[in-house]
Simulated scan of single mutants.
Amino acid sequence: MSHDHDHDHTPVNFNRAFAIGIVLNLAFVGIEAFYGWRVNSLALLADAGHNLSDVAGLVLAWGGALAIRLVPDARHTYGWKRATILAAFANALLLLVAMGGLAWEAIGRLMSNEVSLRQQGVTIMLVAGVGIVINTATALLFMRGREHDLNIRGAFLHMAADALVSAGVVVAGALTLWQGWTWLDPVVSLGIAAVILWGTWDLFKQSLHMLFDGVPDHIDPQAVHDCLAALPGVTQVHDLHIWAMGTAHVALTAHLVMPLGQADDAFLNATTELLHDRFEITHVTLQVVKVPFTPSCVPVPDKDKPTQAKSCPV
């Protein structure tokens, strides 16, 4: 068994980014809701509701980011890293529900012919313009963490999508003012819902997959199997498991069948480093046996598939 090595897995601290993002977006929600109510703009009111759900999403993501720093104990030996997956899933679910409500309201307004007043186009444009600035600034706070942490990626995507949504509202306000297309306001709301549903679906699928201990998308289990099978003295890789402990932490357990004897600490340490460097697997537990003595929980990988084993020797 080996999982101690020199790489630093301390999560990047985004506390300041979360705090700034929450304060900015709460302020903007108040502004947007007030002017949406004043000018009877569904696009502004809907976007205010969406931004409020994003505040809730940021709070969830922040809670998840804080939870992974809690020290493991005898009852929670892996710590609380899975909280980041739960936060990402709740974030995606919250957005899907909010956008469903937005689409329903927009369709209802179109069918009832209830539209915004043409003369309010300037107000809509100015308020949404503020949203572009706030949402872009908030998205930039999370940009550096979006590639390696699904939880942070969820926060980044929400803010980036909001900036695009606000830009769409500006365009709708301009066209309403210029052409008198008062029907455009609920149509833009439907467009907002479609864009965000499209962007959120992948986050929802990934987080749900990880909740059920699925192999993270960036890891090819066949390549991991072939890499371990190519190690000196290994004749079989048995009972291989790969799963996400959190949105930025991956665990692996496996039995390595080595008939000629046990591996030493140098072998285990080198293998752990290899799995980290090539696959970003951060917690490795290996059991070395001469013959497999437990039934495998997963199917043996297809040996007819091309192997990458030659690139993985220790």
Score class of each variant (00 low, 15 high):
residue 190 L to A: 14
residue 154 G to I: 01
residue 226 D to N: 10
residue 56 A to T: 12
residue 65 A to M: 06
residue 266 A to R: 06
residue 228 L to V: 03
residue 44 L to D: 07
residue 155 A to V: 15
residue 248 A to K: 02
residue 20 I to Q: 14
residue 167 A to V: 10
residue 92 A to S: 09
residue 92 A to V: 10
residue 178 W to G: 10
residue 157 L to A: 07
residue 291 V to A: 14
residue 292 P to D: 02
residue 139 A to W: 12
residue 267 F to H: 04
residue 225 H to F: 13
residue 203 L to G: 05
residue 19 A to R: 15
residue 136 T to P: 01
residue 274 L to E: 02
residue 261 G to V: 06
residue 241 H to R: 13
residue 142 F to K: 11
residue 200 T to A: 13
residue 73 D to Q: 01
residue 307 T to R: 14
residue 116 S to W: 00
residue 203 L to C: 04
residue 305 K to G: 08
residue 17 A to S: 12
residue 252 L to S: 01
residue 163 A to R: 15
residue 18 F to C: 12
residue 106 A to M: 06
residue 307 T to Y: 06
residue 293 F to D: 07
residue 142 F to Q: 08
residue 276 H to L: 08
residue 310 K to R: 12
residue 291 V to D: 12
residue 306 P to I: 06
residue 257 V to F: 01
residue 96 L to P: 05
residue 153 R to Q: 14
residue 137 A to Y: 13
residue 304 D to P: 01
residue 59 V to P: 09
residue 249 H to L: 06
residue 292 P to Q: 00
residue 67 A to C: 02
residue 87 A to L: 11
residue 280 E to S: 09
residue 101 G to T: 10
residue 114 E to D: 09
residue 176 T to Y: 03
residue 232 P to W: 05
residue 43 A to D: 04
residue 222 Q to P: 02
residue 183 W to E: 10
residue 99 M to W: 07
residue 216 P to A: 06
residue 52 L to W: 08
residue 10 T to Y: 11
residue 313 P to Y: 05
residue 152 I to L: 15
residue 293 F to I: 03
residue 70 L to W: 12
residue 87 A to E: 10
residue 198 W to A: 13
residue 252 L to P: 00
residue 29 V to Q: 09
residue 38 R to I: 08
residue 124 I to W: 00
residue 288 V to Y: 04
residue 17 A to G: 10
residue 137 A to Q: 11
residue 183 W to R: 09
residue 55 V to W: 06
residue 23 V to L: 14
residue 54 D to Q: 00
residue 86 L to S: 09
residue 158 H to Y: 09
residue 233 G to D: 03
residue 265 D to C: 02
residue 284 V to R: 04
residue 181 W to H: 07
residue 96 L to M: 13
residue 109 R to W: 01
residue 49 G to N: 05
residue 222 Q to T: 12
residue 249 H to V: 12
residue 37 W to F: 15
residue 93 L to N: 04
residue 244 A to C: 04
residue 14 F to R: 11
residue 191 G to A: 09
residue 234 V to I: 11
residue 303 K to Q: 08
residue 244 A to K: 00
residue 14 F to P: 01
residue 176 T to K: 12
residue 305 K to F: 08
residue 219 I to S: 04
residue 194 A to W: 15
residue 216 P to C: 04
residue 191 G to L: 04
residue 126 L to M: 15
residue 135 N to G: 10
residue 233 G to C: 02
residue 308 Q to C: 11
residue 145 G to H: 12
residue 132 I to K: 05
residue 68 I to R: 05
residue 171 V to S: 10
residue 308 Q to G: 13
residue 72 P to W: 00
residue 75 R to K: 15
residue 64 G to I: 09
residue 200 T to P: 14
residue 139 A to I: 14
residue 111 M to D: 07
residue 314 V to Y: 09
residue 314 V to D: 12
residue 32 E to F: 03
residue 259 P to V: 00
residue 252 L to V: 00
residue 35 Y to I: 11
residue 110 L to F: 00
residue 26 L to F: 11
